[in-house]
Design a protein around this nucleic acid. Structure first.
Lengths: 93, 93
DNA sequence: TATTTTTGTTTATTTTATAAACTTGTTTAC
DNA sequence: GTAAACAAGTTTATAAAATAAACAAAAATA
């Protein structure tokens, strides 16, 4: 009847992150911070959860002299994201 | 950019409850229990949260000799539910 | 060189979800 | 008629999650 909703995606910030990443090659930490309006701490935690799940990849490098983190969605993540919205349909009136 | 997702509805069980109630006059506790596959405890807690928010009404009566609880969605709830799905669109690719 | 900025991470607190235990009353079996 | 099992929930306790606050390390700036 009701399709289960991936708990990892069923969170506003993580869903925002995935939504941003899906349409883009990769995104910097700062960009995600701006677009989501989140705090650094929360963003850091949630990015790592998505990474642990294999939904995104995180590349740590430098931009000029400053540390810089680039995130990109994985095939697994892309799939989970689409499955999530598919599942949501089963809750619709 | 991203529409906020009503935290009360952004929970699998509560969303199931609302989804069931929206297409029906009212539903008994036992029916909701069956359809959602939830435990009694969790169902009880989440129904009360929805009631506190004014999203549903709860009528306690009897069915034969046994206590019996009937739930129905309110106008506010109906509205919140539709707003929730509207908001979700802003997360879609 | 002291202070402020940048870019994050880690830890601590609060909130939430869930499950386990309890309550009240009703049947049914002995 | 009383003990055991069942029904329908509620309450409380535990586990998990989300979020915010504090911290860190290096860089820029005054």
């Amino acid at each position: 009847m009701f399709e289960p909703l991936d708990p990892l995606l069923h969170n506003q910030l993580r869903l925002q992150i995935m939504s941003l990443l899906i349409g883009i090659e990769n995104a910097e930490f700062g960009f995600l911070l701006d677009e989501t309006g989140s705090t650094r701490g929360n963003l850091s935690v949630q990015l790592n959860k998505l990474k642990e799940a294999g939904y995104i990849e995180i590349e740590k490098g430098y931009k000029g002299n400053y540390p810089n983190t680039k995130c990109s969605i994985s095939a697994l993540g892309r799939n989970a994201f689409s499955t999530y919205f598919e599942a949501l349909k089963s809750y619709k009136p």
